[in-house]
Design a protein around this nucleic acid. Structure first.
Lengths: 201, 201
DNA sequence: GTCTATACGAGGATAGAC
DNA sequence: GTCTATCCTCGTATAGAC
């Protein structure tokens, strides 16, 4: 991608993530980049195309974090539930440590009601795929006798992941104000411990 | 409150909840109400004062749902964890069945990053007070021998409430598009069952 | 309290020179 | 690809008549 286009995109991500799509003007974006308004239109047809590009970027980044299904069985054979979830959590923390990813999350939250694309991305893509993946993981863990067969794998996926969604959202809000996040990070770790203790055979 | 002022407020809540504060103009609000722009300023000093009034309203509505601490012990003596949580869930559903409340939730979600007041309301007030209340509830349940003393009451509050936050948020998004919500409602009920089974002595 | 009229800066976007 | 200049609509807000 053209370096100016990239600059525009990143300035837009930064601004949208703080003030929302409707709260940011083309003038602000171009001012942040250091170009004139008219120059922006050499890279994007209009303001909405910037947002569309951002949503595409989010989709791509999310796909990057998924474990390929081919190697899933192999991984699950080599680990127990606890190590698997902790490892996933560590990977997630790496992921979110990238400030741009954090900004993309915020944009999705802000635009979820105003923009149907953001809503679908959040509901069907993000929540949907994560739940599908975890349901598969717990199904296999139960088959392998590494998780108690007492509960529906889909319920386990919810019990594990849904608290995480809220904690991540809380974490993001605290970070946004530069507030202390150790308490919430500790809670995430405690949640994993709690969950593992309950599902272990 | 003056009837025109009330109409303005409700039109603003409706519009803000769909397009966000920055995505709605004074012209749109007054058009929805059927008055001229200038008339609005007889009721609110400026656009921001409308949002401030909305946030105050949310605070008041939330306070309405809290159980007074004086009568908590009495309630907890009369019920087990399951009935207590199911009853709370029913009350919550009544609460959210009010379309205005639903809209207020959406506004809070949309504005959480742009507006520090919305962020504090969400983090410290809403999440904070709910957790405080539930931690107290589980502490007392443990004292009364109605919940296993194996876990920290605060952890129990998180394990119960945090998945609910995500599910409510998901529920709201689905409802916004008039999509089917029976699956998510069923999951909420399953979550309560799961939780009760785990904490029961 | 509501209206008409108006101010005036900010908004997205384009034409055309370089 | 970037600039200057410009368009025209929308945005918040006020003054003053009724």
């Amino acid at each position: 991608m053209n370096p100016t286009k990239e600059k525009i995109l990143h300035a837009a991500i930064d601004l949208f993530s703080r003030n929302g799509f409707t709260g940011v003007s083309i003038r602000e974006i171009t001012k942040a980049v250091g170009i004139k308004e008219s120059s922006l239109y050499n890279h994007f047809a209009n303001k909405d195309e910037i947002l569309e590009t951002i949503l595409d970027l989010f989709r791509a980044e999310f796909n990057n974090t998924l474990v390929p299904p081919e190697i899933l069985d192999q991984i699950l054979d080599q680990t127990d539930v606890g190590s698997f979830l902790i490892r996933g959590f560590e990977k997630y923390k790496e992921h979110i440590r990238n400030p741009m990813i954090e900004q993309l999350w915020r944009i999705l939250q802000i635009e979820q009601y105003r923009d149907p694309r953001a809503r679908t991305l959040m509901l069907d893509f993000l929540i949907g795929h994560t739940m599908e993946f975890l349901t598969l993981v717990f199904t296999k863990f139960i088959e392998k006798g590494k998780v108690r067969p007492d509960w529906d794998p889909e319920l386990l996926a919810i019990e594990y992941q849904y608290p995480m969604f809220t904690m991540v959202s809380e974490f993001n809000m605290l970070k946004f104000d530069n507030r202390d996040t150790t308490a919430i990070e500790q809670r995430m770790a405690q949640h994993i411990q709690f969950f593992v203790k309950i599902v272990q055979p």
